[in-house]
């Protein structure tokens, strides 16, 4: 187990380095002068003085390799540079907002698992029946509706019409726990919806496959009742591929937070990102994109480890 975890951590570190390099390269691979590009809007040529100033501010006047070296060196100290807008260091702002986004993602993953796995299991057990058709239809609909449409509709219904909850915002947990979770509910549910649909589809397919396995027949031959068979010998085995898909969907999930944080005014990383992109504040955007990508890699690492816990055979492979 220890060797497996060590290997996974190593792979994750390599991924972090690759992603950082890719993000660095994006600015330099785009044809044209980066500083000029960042300052141009529409067809108007930017002011040459401003371009020169931005160039020296971002260190773009130095050789590319030297820029890369100091970029990576800064990253190892978790130094993300300063914002172009107000010259404030970016790292503290990231540290403040990261936990809020993480909370949203984890809450959504939790909701999706708690709803998706049981519904997917039921759909598989009742394969061909009306409950399976209903669940599959709902899953298709949930997958096809964009998160910002769902979020906006929730705001319209629950905040505007019913007035149960305010349209969005954030209160720190320490300040008012009840209000904190009340405000978390809608954004988390919105992100969870498409993920729940994916979980339902995957769980259904996976359970149907496990039901065909010989060891389920053995469990029946032991005289076990349906409940324990489904819990211990079907769902437990079926979870392994479902967990893998959860990892693959993590990218979409994180992308979803960008839109949902905006809709619900949740002060996480993504709202910060939208403002940074609007202002075309490149260092800020890079900092946020890097932190979210690292988060993405980290979540996938956690999923790999969960995988090994669920299926003891995994540790032996590779």
């Amino acid at each position: 187990m220890l060797r497996y975890v060590a290997l996974r951590v190593l792979i994750a570190l390599v991924l972090v380095w690759l992603v950082s390099t890719l993000v660095f390269l994006v600015l330099h691979l785009v044809p044209g002068d980066p500083a000029e590009l960042l300052l141009s809007a529409g067809n108007t040529a930017p002011d040459p003085e401003a371009v020169a100033q931005l160039r020296s501010q971002m260190g773009l006047d130095r050789p590319v390799l030297a820029q890369y070296a100091s970029y990576i060196a800064d990253l190892t100290h978790l130094d993300f540079g300063v914002s172009l807008r107000d010259q404030n260091p970016i790292a503290p702002e990231l540290a403040l907002r990261l936990p809020r986004t993480l909370e949203l993602i984890l809450a959504a993953a939790l909701i999706a698992s708690l709803i998706g796995v049981p519904l997917g299991t039921i759909a598989a057990m009742r394969d061909g029946g009306w409950s399976e058709k209903l669940v599959s239809l709902l899953a298709s609909a949930a997958l096809s509706t964009p998160v910002f449409v769902v979020g906006t509709t929730l705001v319209l219904v629950f905040a505007q019409w019913l007035g149960w909850i305010s349209a969005g915002g954030y209160v720190p947990l320490a300040e008012d726990p009840a209000r904190h979770f009340a405000l978390l509910a809608m954004p988390a549910a919105t992100i969870a919806l498409p993920l729940t649909a994916v979980m339902i589809r995957m769980t259904r397919a996976s359970v149907l496959e496990v039901l065909e396995k010989d060891h389920v027949r053995t469990a029946r031959a032991k005289g076990l009742a349906r409940g324990p068979i489904i819990r211990r010998h079907v769902v437990r085995n079926a979870l392994v591929p479902v967990i893998t898909v959860l990892g693959l969907e993590m990218g979409t999930l994180i992308g979803g937070t960008v839109l949902v944080e905006y809709v619900f005014n949740w002060p996480g990383l993504s709202g910060y990102l939208v403002r940074a992109v609007e202002a075309r504040d490149y260092p800020e955007v890079v900092g946020i994109v890097l932190v979210i990508s690292f988060l993405f890699v980290l979540l996938n690492l956690l999923i790999d480890i969960t995988y090994a816990v669920l299926d003891p055979r995994v540790k032996l492979a590779k």
């Binding site: 690759l18 994006v26 992308g255």
Partner: peptide, 14 residues
């Protein structure tokens, strides 16, 4: 390795 929406936003910034 990059979440899809983020890469798009990086390109839009530039």
């Amino acid at each position: 390795c990059l979440p899809p929406l983020l890469l798009a936003m990086l390109v839009i910034t530039i």
